[in-house]
Design a protein around this nucleic acid. Structure first.
Lengths: 144, 144
DNA sequence: ATCATTGCAAAAGATTTGCATAGTG
DNA sequence: CACTATGCAAATCTTTTGCAATGAT
């Protein structure tokens, strides 16, 4: 949990203007552990900031995500994507082009169950995110 | 990869009518390993079945999912959900109520990297799906 | 013959965009 | 002051739904 000053510093460092709205969205999200949607955040913030628009919440979440300050829970795909393989297996997702590859690895199929009171595990999957060979090659040679 | 007869048998067993459309959607999805969206499947199938509607593809994917014959890649949430915690951590997702809980477990933070030629791993996360205590309690006492 | 599925079109839900105004550095 | 973000409304994209016609068992 970052202090307000740490947040200010982060914005300054990255040269991104820090507005009231951005701070409010970030602090609201930080204070919650229920992984809210943009709409849910907007609803909560409306009380304190009646003029805050939903579009701004979306834009702000995008900005914060680009800054690496917030994560989207799991699938980065906007659209639902399907798989005919229903047995346990895993995925790699390329942050560059969105390509999803199947990963079969028995050592990932058995993991310690979550220590969560009463939770009945039906399955699990591991999600590696990063850059596929092609995208890694495209971005590596040119930085700076 | 199931044979056509195995598919027929599955439908018969579950007493779900097997239509041409359902077989076509399932076979198309099975033949691809790129985790297509509903729209992408529809586009591919249009050539062979010009009258196939996108709504049917959506309905069929739902049906197949309920039958346990297809999986949705990772997040079952229709809406994007966010997290202010960007360090490595994991999630449990309740299939009943959709609740997402954070899971901190150092033994999950180090996993063998995917054996994927050239893939640069930036991070990973483990996704347990199942039933939270409340939903497990609600569904357990009454089966049958 | 009965009951579920399909296709169509409209509706609903989620996210993005254009533009004038307001706010930040 | 220069530049970017905001709010609004419209646009876009994804998914769902109602209903008459069709198809499966």
């Amino acid at each position: 949990m970052k202090t307000r000053d740490e947040v200010r510093a982060l914005f300054r460092t990255k040269k991104v203007p820090l507005t009231h709205q951005r701070l409010a969205v970030y602090e609201e999200l930080s204070s919650r552990n229920d992984h809210p949607s943009a709409e849910s955040l907007h609803a909560s913030l409306k009380r304190a900031y009646p003029s805050l628009s939903l579009a701004t919440v979306y834009k702000t979440l995008q900005t914060l995500h680009q800054m690496g300050m917030v994560a989207r829970v799991d699938s980065p795909a906007a659209q639902a994507r399907y798989d005919a393989i229903v047995d346990t297996h895993h995925h790699s997702v390329c942050a560059g082009c969105g390509k999803i590859d199947d990963l079969f690895d028995a050592s990932l199929d058995r993991l310690p169950p979550p220590r969560l009171e009463g939770f009945v595990v039906l399955g699990h999957s591991v999600h590696f995110h990063g850059l596929c060979a092609r995208c890694a090659k495209a971005s590596a040679p040119k930085p700076r």
